[in-house]
Design a protein around this nucleic acid. Structure first.
Lengths: 181, 181
DNA sequence: CGATTTTTTGAATCATATCAACGTACGTGG
DNA sequence: CCACGTACGTTGATATGATTCAAAAAATCG
């Protein structure tokens, strides 16, 4: 690496499907920017059930933000659900997102704001909607992921069991929605 | 108002308990910083049920962020649950939070980051916990609000009916937790 | 004090989970 | 290319957490 250079060295890495990149209790050294493939972050409750917090397909960034930013022990798992290539981002937050000194912190602020808005939408959905509504919303919001991910993972993301999602889906094919050619 | 002055004029206002400060469909011109009293933001589903998104007692800021930042129609109600005095903040986001040019955008970034972390905690709780666990978490996280707010509002915040929260509370007094003198 | 709002209680019901069993698809190694 | 093992999806029976509705009791407020 050249001295005096301000060019960031982008460290990339490949993970096989099923690889766990972060576990609860560890100190999260990286945020992961996905180049191709897909990661998920999730928590596991005392009974062993998984709840997916986020999917990160190509272009997305995923991390245990609390652990990463505040240097606290992680509470999330992060795991590859496909063979996945990532950029490891390990500069102190928020420098890797934007160069604060150069005034494009505005861009970061914009991203963070959008993240908050999205989180609030999901919270509202979890608070006020039935399983079926959450599933329909998922299809609507992430049509590509809906194609690509196994039902099981979608169920975990919307907070229901795979069995019940299977039932919902079954019901939907019988009593179909508006037909889109 | 003096020309050339950079001093922000703080516009304050008082609202009686029960006053609605923002309704869905309106364009949110303000974020509200609470000086004393308490506000809530909430959504109402098609059946008329309320789900509280946020409480804002003294010191907190509350808004329909999406509407306020992006100039879209609001989806939230904001309402005074006590007589409440607020600062009306109506400068373009994010200027009122911090003066970007003067380098304390870092402070704003910090606040936004904390907000995201908190939102993620609540999402995890909604996804993975029972009503009782969410109630205990609320007692733990907002002990002061737990004293101050009617049960009904707490129920709405944790996403259950008041009847069921009453039942939970009742059960808890019979089978008490660890005794704190 | 009366009027309104909040909390409690109980019974019936509903949405969703659990468990177990079976069917299907899929990927890998022979 | 087949066969097998493993993961995934479906189905049905039963259980449970939480809602609904109605009504009474308790608290709060003008």
């Amino acid at each position: 690496m050249e001295a005096q250079e301000t060019i960031k060295k982008l460290q990339t890495k490949e993970f096989k499907k099923g690889t766990i990149l972060l576990r609860p209790g560890e100190y999260s050294r990286y945020a992961f920017q996905v180049l191709n493939g897909c990661l998920k972050s999730y928590i596991v409750d005392k009974t062993g059930k998984e709840y997916i917090m986020q999917f990160a397909p190509e272009g997305w960034v995923i991390s245990d933000m609390d652990s990463y930013v505040n240097k606290t022990p992680a509470t999330l798992f992060i795991e590859a659900i496909e063979d996945t290539e990532v950029i490891l981002m390990n500069e102190p937050f928020p420098s890797f997102f934007s160069d604060i000194s150069s005034g494009n912190s505005l861009e970061l602020i914009h991203k963070l704001t959008n993240n908050i808005i999205a989180a609030n939408r999901r919270m509202a959905l979890l608070l006020s909607s039935t399983a079926e509504e959450r599933y329909l919303n998922f299809l609507d919001t992430y049509p590509v992921l809906a194609q690509r991910l196994p039902l099981k993972l979608i169920a975990s993301y919307i907070g229901i069991t795979p069995e019940y999602l299977s039932e919902i889906r079954n019901k939907m094919t019988k009593k179909p929605g508006p037909f889109i050619s």
